[in-house]
Design a protein around this nucleic acid. Structure first.
Lengths: 117, 117
DNA sequence: CCCGTCACGCAACCATCGGTTGCGCATGGT
DNA sequence: ACCATGCGCAACCGATGGTTGCGTGACGGG
């Protein structure tokens, strides 16, 4: 049950800078490499590279307008990414719950034996 | 609302190989570098390095027993990681819902105007 | 007891990635 | 016409995920 995950999508979202970029793009509606670099502690070129990988996995789309290149989040694709996050989270959560249940059962049996003595 | 995230924990879980290792460790209860490397497409040394970073962020703990070093998942820490995944997921999900709501509202106004003509 | 084997750690090496600086080019405002 | 702005390309750097090769300590059957 390894929760089928698109590794490209996940690792795109795995980078903290890219996550913050997505946050900003979602908050503002859109943005350019320069506008994002002004609000993040990295250079415009670094942002540009990140926008490249986000674009490659379809998490953002770009529209050229004059000398600007405005990027916008692809909501459907981000929704897919969110789904994968919660999918993996849910799988692990389920396993953790089962482990906890078993541990409690064992503790219970020990208690009974202890009380018996 | 950037969903306070421990970048170390996230990036530990961000690697696909490490995710699969955690899956295996959860499924089997524990494991060694060699046992994991037999079930994953990477060498024992790669696994050992990954176990190192997982240990550094507290996602696994190791117990030496003879010539083996058995690793076991720290359930509390993994629970924290899961919480962070769902936290970020929820934040983005909320934004996406708001966008969708606004989009629908606009579409509605357009419909009304269209019907009015 | 001793030798082979098995699990491990250490080190060197390589490709990729996130990040930087420096440059050149085109578009746009005055 | 000119200068500023936004961008892309290239070179470089450190960290990281991965490999191969080797040395070493624990274990078990002759």
């Amino acid at each position: 049950m390894t929760a089928a995950v698109d590794d490209d999508l996940w690792s795109a979202v795995g980078d903290p800078t890219r996550r913050r970029m997505l946050d900003l793009l979602l908050a503002d509606g859109d943005g350019t490499a320069t506008s994002l670099s002004e609000r993040l502690p990295v250079t415009r070129q670094a942002i540009a590279k990140h926008l490249g990988v986000l674009d490659r996995v379809g998490l953002v789309h770009v529209t050229s307008s004059g000398r600007e290149r405005r990027y916008r989040v692809d909501e459907a694709q981000l929704a897919r990414a969110v789904a994968q996050l919660s999918s993996v989270g849910a799988a692990w959560d389920a396993r953790l719950r089962r482990i906890k249940r078993i541990a409690e059962a064992i503790a219970l049996r020990k208690d009974q034996r202890g009380a018996q003595q």
